[in-house]
Computed example of a mutant assay.
Amino acid sequence: MKIEKFKFNETGLNRFFGPLEAKIMTALWNGSEMSIKDVQHVLEKEKAVNFNTVMTVMNRLVEKGVLQKRLKGRTSMYQPILSKEEFIDAQSKELTHELIDEFGSLAVTHMLDALEEVDDSLLSMLESKVKQLKKDE
């Protein structure tokens, strides 16, 4: 699944989703399979959200391939297709490939420059990955 619009000026899940979509995804990732009413109840703790609005957004997330929907009796139940970690991994991988495809070595150079600002554990993990890639050649 590829999210078509990545928003550089946003943070967190709002880079991939609209504000309500992000709240719905967070509710579903923090819980289990939920109905529209269940999600609306979680969101109402912050502020009132119309049932029909929640239903429309959740069905849009199904169309985008982020949620799956099944019937339990007469109630539609929703759950994320991927865990939050799997989703972030897939999106960051897709974004990285797109940057390298479009900008090539310039994107790689900037990624390497950014390593000056990361902690040592991330740098060690990267070094291990590079060593593994060289072994596989």
Rank of each mutant, 00 (worst) to 15 (best):
W29I: 01
W29R: 04
W29M: 04
N30Q: 13
N30F: 01
N30G: 14
N30W: 01
N30S: 12
S32E: 12
S32V: 04
E33Q: 13
M34N: 04
S35Y: 04
S35F: 04
S35L: 03
S35D: 04
I36A: 12
I36V: 15
K37M: 11
D38E: 07
D38G: 05
D38M: 04
D38V: 04
V39G: 02
V39D: 03
V39T: 09
V39E: 04
V39R: 01
Q40Y: 00
Q40T: 10
Q40N: 03
H41S: 14
V42G: 00
V42Y: 01
V42I: 11
V42D: 08
L43R: 07
L43M: 03
L43Y: 01
L43S: 05
E44Q: 10
E44D: 13
E44A: 07
E44G: 00
E44W: 03
K45C: 06
K45Y: 11
K45T: 09
K45M: 11
E46G: 05
E46V: 00
K47L: 00
A48Y: 07
A48R: 07
V49R: 04
V49P: 00
N50I: 11
N50K: 10
F51W: 12
N52A: 11
N52I: 09
N52W: 08
N52M: 12
N52C: 06
T53A: 08
T53Y: 06
V54Y: 04
V54L: 02
M55H: 14
T56R: 15
T56N: 12
V57K: 14
V57Y: 08
M58R: 06
M58Q: 09
M58H: 03
M58W: 03
M58Y: 02
N59Q: 13
N59F: 01
N59H: 13
N59D: 15
N59I: 01
R60Q: 12
R60T: 09
R60G: 13
R60S: 14
L61G: 10
L61C: 10
L61A: 09
L61K: 09
L61V: 11
V62I: 12
V62Y: 11
V62A: 10
V62K: 10
E63Q: 12
E63I: 02
E63G: 11
K64G: 05
K64W: 06
K64Y: 13
G65P: 06
V66H: 07
V66G: 08
V66L: 14
V66D: 07
V66C: 13
L67C: 12
L67D: 13
Q68D: 15
Q68R: 15
K69R: 15
K69H: 05
K69L: 09
R70Y: 10
R70F: 05
R70P: 00
L71E: 08
L71W: 11
G73I: 07
G73P: 04
G73F: 08
G73T: 06
G73Y: 06
R74G: 08
R74K: 15
R74T: 15
R74L: 15
R74W: 05
T75K: 14
S76V: 03
S76D: 09
M77A: 01
M77C: 06
Y78T: 05
Y78L: 02
Q79C: 08
Q79P: 01
Q79T: 12
P80S: 13
P80K: 09
P80W: 08
I81W: 07
I81V: 15
I81G: 08
I81S: 08
L82V: 03
L82M: 15
L82Y: 11
L82I: 02
